Amino acid sequence: MTITLNAAPPRLRAELVVLDERFTKIAGDEYLECLYDGGRWLEGPAYSPAWRCLVFSDIPNDRLLRWDELSGQVSVFREPSGYVNGNTIDRAGRLISCSQGDRQVIRTEYDGTRTVLASHLDGKRLNSPNDVVERSDGSIWFTDPPYGITSSYEGHAAEQEIDGCHVYRIAPDGTLTVVADDFIRPNGLAFCNDETQLYVVDTPGKHIRRFDVDGVKLLGGEVFAPCEGGMFDGIRLDSTGRVWAATHEGVHCFDPDGTLIGKLLLPDVVSNLTFGGPKGNRLFITATTSVWSWLTNVQTAQR
Results as ranks from 00 to 15, higher is better:
145 P>L: 07
222 E>S: 12
45 P>M: 05
258 G>A: 04
30 E>S: 15
189 L>N: 04
277 G>Y: 03
102 D>K: 15
166 H>Y: 13
86 G>M: 02
79 E>N: 12
76 V>D: 08
183 F>A: 11
25 K>Q: 15
20 D>W: 02
298 V>T: 06
208 I>A: 03
144 D>R: 02
241 G>D: 07
269 V>N: 14
62 D>K: 11
255 D>H: 06
131 D>P: 10
273 L>N: 10
252 H>F: 15
68 D>N: 03
22 R>C: 05
18 V>F: 12
280 G>Q: 07
71 S>V: 08
258 G>I: 06
294 W>Y: 09
300 T>F: 15
53 C>K: 07
224 F>Y: 09
207 H>D: 14
215 G>W: 01
98 C>E: 06
295 L>M: 09
228 E>I: 15
268 D>G: 06
188 G>D: 14
109 E>K: 09
107 R>D: 02
140 I>G: 06
19 L>E: 11
9 P>N: 05
156 H>I: 11
76 V>A: 06
75 S>D: 15
167 V>P: 05
53 C>Q: 12
208 I>T: 03
191 F>C: 12
42 L>T: 08
176 L>N: 12
98 C>P: 11
123 G>E: 00
115 T>G: 10
237 L>E: 10
227 C>K: 03
148 G>V: 07
147 Y>P: 07
206 K>W: 04
124 K>C: 04
172 P>A: 04
73 Q>F: 14
56 F>D: 05
7 A>T: 14
148 G>M: 06
268 D>F: 07
11 R>P: 13
303 R>C: 14
21 E>L: 02
